[in-house]
Structure formats: C-alpha cells, structure tokens
Design a protein around this nucleic acid. Sequence first.
DNA 1: TTCATACTTAACTAGTTGGTTAATTAACTG
DNA 2: CAGTTAATTAACCAACTAGTTAAGTATGAA
Lengths: 132, 132
Amino acid sequence: MQSSDHLSQTFSALADPTRRAILARLSKGEANVSDLAAPFLKTMSLPAVTKHLKVLENAGLITKSKDAQWRPCRINAAPLRGAVDWMETYRQFWEESLDRLDLYLKSVQVNEPLPAKKRRKGKRNGVKTKTK
Amino acid sequence: MQSSDHLSQTFSALADPTRRAILARLSKGEANVSDLAAPFLKTMSLPAVTKHLKVLENAGLITKSKDAQWRPCRINAAPLRGAVDWMETYRQFWEESLDRLDLYLKSVQVNEPLPAKKRRKGKRNGVKTKTK
DNA sequence: TTCATACTTAACTAGTTGGTTAATTAACTG
DNA sequence: CAGTTAATTAACCAACTAGTTAAGTATGAA
C-alpha cells in the first residue's frame, strides 16, 4: 500500500477483485473465514485468503470476532463513505461528457478557464504557437 | 496493480496521494507536466511524476495531448463513474450504522439474516455453542 | 488424551511499485 | 548552428504485494 493515509488504504484495499468479491459476499451476511475462502480455493490457498482479510481488516472494511475456533467476519462499509465523498467532488467531470458544450459555456461565463501555463520567459512578439 | 480489470486499475490509481493531488489540480483546468510536477519537486523528481501520470493515463483518468514541447493534460473522470457505482451498492451499509436497529428490524421482518455457516458434521445433540 | 477443524504465522519467492540519476528526444530560441 | 526547455526513457534499487508450503495455535469432539 505504501501510503498510510486513510483514503489510500481504502482505495488500495478495493484494488483487488478477490477482496471486492469478499466484500460482496459479506454484504449478504456474516461469514467465517472458511466460508469466505471457499469460492477461491480452486485458485489460491487459505493463507492467501487470510492475508486478503487482513488487508480488509486493516483498512477497516471488515471486522472479525471470535466464536470458538471460528472467526465470523462482518462488513464495515464506513470507510467507503470517505472514498465516495472524495469521488463525488469529480461528479461534474463525468457528467460533463454527457453535455460538454453546456458545461463549457457555463465555465467561460463564470470565469476564465485555466489554460496550461506555458511559462515562456521572453515576450512572444506576436508569434503564433502552432496548435496542432 | 497486478489485476488488470478496469475497476482494479481505477482503485489502484487512486490509492496514492500524489496521484489524487494531480487529479485535484486537473479539476481546476488543463496543465502541463511541469505545472503538475511543481508542487512535488521538493519531495520527488520529475521522472517520478511522469510515472504517476502514466499510471493515471493507463487507468484512463487523464488524457495527454501535444503542444510543441508541452504535454497538456486533462482530467477524464469517466472511470470514476464505475468505481462510484460499485461503491454505491454498499451505501446501505454505511447508512446502516446511522440507524442500525431500524435496519436490523427490517431485515428480520423480510427474511432471516444469513448466519455464519458452522458446517459442523455430526448432530449437535442440543449442545449450545458458547457465543462470546 | 488424542484427533479433527478452523485459522494464523513463518519463511520464502517472483513480480510490481515508487523512487532515483543519467542520458535521450523533441521543439523552440537566438 | 549551439543552447535551452519540456518531457521521456533507461537502468537501477529498496520496499511492498500476493502468492506459496509447512508448521503452529486454539477449540471442540470422541
């Protein structure tokens, strides 16, 4: 994961299809480690699943309790809230493509869009930059 | 990233604060590589930023074009839609905690919640499992 | 007490990530 | 042309990830 901030941990935990499948399973209800592992045992070992669960647990996305030798796991979606909140700040940009012109018109109406800074030092003497 | 599915690629790209900061900057408008790199040059080199941009580009979260020796980058939030859609399927679980009892009551009313399977082989002879 | 079940821990490994410095490419500037 | 700016590529490296097998722990059953 490398970066230990909360958001990085959440996104990093979700960046694996096995872990997302485990969360999907847990959204149907509590399950033990071996229940959760069952669908994956054709492709990976039990300790591999234990590790995935540890990643999810460290990210706060699941909680594990004890019941004799079983470890019932439950989903805890709270960290997803922060992740969705972060993404929601970009909602306009994926809706933009649905009506790009409209948004463009609004943006030039309100304030100049920021062009990529060229940071040319000298004066340009009116020489036109070839724009493709 | 390891897993190459679209969702994994998106989450993986977002699992780094530098890359999220780059997206944040691009949400203010188009910017060249050196513009984007500027805030990070105290802590990392330009090639490091180039690599982060490549990750974002591979995830489809930015597009790069050419303008002479500059490479103006733009945000493309479209992949975030899929990521948010996936997360939204868990919304009830983070709202649940806001009113857990209410949701519990609804769930037992509609159908039995799935308990963690114990998969004990023999008959239980009415022996109670110690539950914490 | 012995065995079986559920799960974790340890030790190891191949491949990936995130960074580095140095060299290279491409385009404009004088 | 020689020089400068913008950005990429190459080669390298340390740390991390995602898996493995084998051994260990904890609990309940016979």
